[in-house]
Design a protein around this nucleic acid. Structure first.
Lengths: 337, 337
DNA sequence: CTTGGCACTCAGGAAGCATGAGTGCCAGGG
DNA sequence: CCCTGGCACTCATGCTTCCTGAGTGCCAAG
């Protein structure tokens, strides 16, 4: 359907358009790439490519611009991930290694991605569901007030206040703490939810109301608040001289956690790289942007996703390289800590 | 120097310009406000106001636009904070009351401010220095690994991993925990730093290396990481059809925590409302914006600041009302929790 | 299938022009 | 002394017109 040269032309169109941000014409194409044919030939090829929907012209008699479909083909078959330089990789590693605490890791990841790609970076906090309970701590803050702290192996620490129905003493708290840790330590959070659900009955009636309150908070925390937080940064890169179009929509989408969740969720589940181009995107406001997503996690499992968001006219090979590298290193860091 | 009517004219110019975003001329002024004089008279007044630097014309023969100096006078002497409607106040209270945990309070505050003012909201986490230690928890995660959790009365929870020089047992940890809580509970963080510094000597030599490691982490956490985190939201409001000018600079400034710190720091220390207009702003990229800042805190003390950022051409009375109301309610919420 | 030639299209900038909002100034009136 | 109506002047804005050049599609010849 498309011979070798037509594909080469498409690739060239994408590359040139990405770097110049101007519709690319047949003449400049032969000049910049060493295609050994005349502009007229290229014009014929471009006519075909346009007919098939891979490129389009903004107005009659202007160069061609890739369509979403064109970018798609480019990403799938015409380009390869561009690996980062070893200097860059070392910089990433040392910068991430300096992080302490999950919050800091996530924050640094966002900055890193935004700076490497000069685009908007989006990072999801590691999912709780697949991680393992390391410890549960109960702190008595008052006669009827407790702080529940849940620590997971990915370094995530969740805390929440609980107002108790009855008064309680330090020793009640100690009992409950011991019970919880004995039952949950080392369990996956998914199991933990089930275990906690069955735990109320084992508590002596006297403290049962209080225990139930604590348990329900733990379950809510585990079951509901999963993967909720998403952080982004690098929005200043959106204000690039081109692409002010629809900026407001994009910013709105970014600030709406739910929307972001949905977008990340739609990307492939596998830990592999996934690219969403323009209108492939499920969210209205992001129809003019592309999203390069990767899962990350410690060990073999994908704990959460991170992504880079930019105009469809983006440097896909470079962005993909950066996303994939950062995802790998973040995973390593999480494993260590 | 400026008689009553000239002040009225200035006020009218500011109000009209804020609402229309177009230079305002003498005719439309007399039409929209019921000044009982002719346009010519107004023109004379405006000439004087311009001479004094309160207003300016973008080009000859266009209406006048307030200068930073004009806004300053308007804010200082010509306007009053516009209180929120009681419906709005109730909405704020219930929305904030639903928050659990400090993170959630801060997040909700940001959203609230951004929505109320349709501008960018900036909220600083409550300062640690003035708050009080409620509890310190040590969790043993491995033979040489500890998690330190510090809980303050403002609901802030700080955690950090510590790698220990020597191996330790559960009972060592329990000792240390007891020691720390006995020494620090109820103390202000500023005192706590000093106390911890002198604590190493009281530990028996066997565990001293480990204890020292823990102490130094606590001190670092208390002394250095204060007031560090700043959260913002509502950036989509920056993309208003006007004011795309310098948008990139503004976004960059917002993402740079250090810069934000500096800006908030320059605002008045008192818990009162402070307004910074245009070039009064210390940060280069924010020279076209105004910042309405207020301290907030539980009880009489200011724990941190929150602010709204918008174009100099903003609705000062309304913004000030919103900022001040939100600051008060956040303070109340923090006090309760 | 490729190529040079050629007529055609049309966005974008330059130039000219009209419009009108808004001004500054002045002379007369309270 | 301040207010007012009148008047000439300025200039951003929007309109039309025109021109240019990049880029096209098509065709006939190699």
């Amino acid at each position: 359907m498309l011979d070798e040269r037509k594909l080469a032309v498409l690739r060239a169109v994408v590359e040139d358009y990405v770097s110049t941000n101007e519709p690319v014409g047949s003449k400049s194409l032969v000049d910049r790439h060493n295609l050994d044919v005349s502009p007229a030939t290229i014009r014929n090829d471009m006519a075909v490519l346009e007919e098939q929907g891979y490129i389009t012209q903004p107005h009659t008699s202007a160069g061609r611009v890739p369509t979403d479909k064109g970018y798609r083909l480019f990403v799938d078959r015409l380009s390869h991930m561009k690996p980062l330089s070893s200097a860059e990789r070392r910089a990433i590693q040392t910068y991430l290694a300096q992080a302490y605490g999950l919050d800091d890791v996530v924050m640094r990841t966002v900055r890193l991605l935004a700076q490497l790609t000069r685009q908007v970076a989006v990072v999801q906090y590691p999912s709780l569901t697949r991680s393992v309970v390391r410890h549960i701590e109960l702190v008595r803050l008052g006669p009827q007030k407790l702080l529940v702290v849940l620590i997971t192996d990915t370094g995530r620490v969740e805390q929440r206040m609980v107002d108790l129905p009855d008064r309680c003493e330090d020793e009640d708290v100690a009992h409950l703490r011991a019970l919880l840790n004995a039952s949950l330590d080392g369990r996956r959070l998914t199991e933990a939810v089930r275990i906690v659900a069955g735990l109320t009955e084992t508590v002596p009636p006297a403290g049962r109301a209080n225990a139930a309150a604590v348990f329900s908070v733990i379950m809510a925390n585990l079951a509901e608040r999963n993967e909720e937080r998403i952080v982004f940064g690098g929005t200043a890169n959106l204000a690039a001289p081109d692409f002010s179009q629809g900026l407001r929509d994009v910013l709105e989408a970014l600030e709406e956690q739910v929307v972001l969740m949905r977008v990340l969720g739609d990307a492939t589940d596998e830990s592999l790289l996934s690219v969403m181009i323009g209108r492939e995107n499920p969210v209205e406001g992001l129809r003019t942007t592309s999203l390069v997503t990767s899962g990350y996690g410690s060990g073999g499992e994908t704990l959460a996703k991170l992504a880079v968001l930019g105009p469809t006219r983006m440097d896909y090979p470079g962005t993909m390289g950066a996303v994939s590298a950062v995802a790998r290193y973040v995973g390593e860091i999480l494993m260590e800590s």
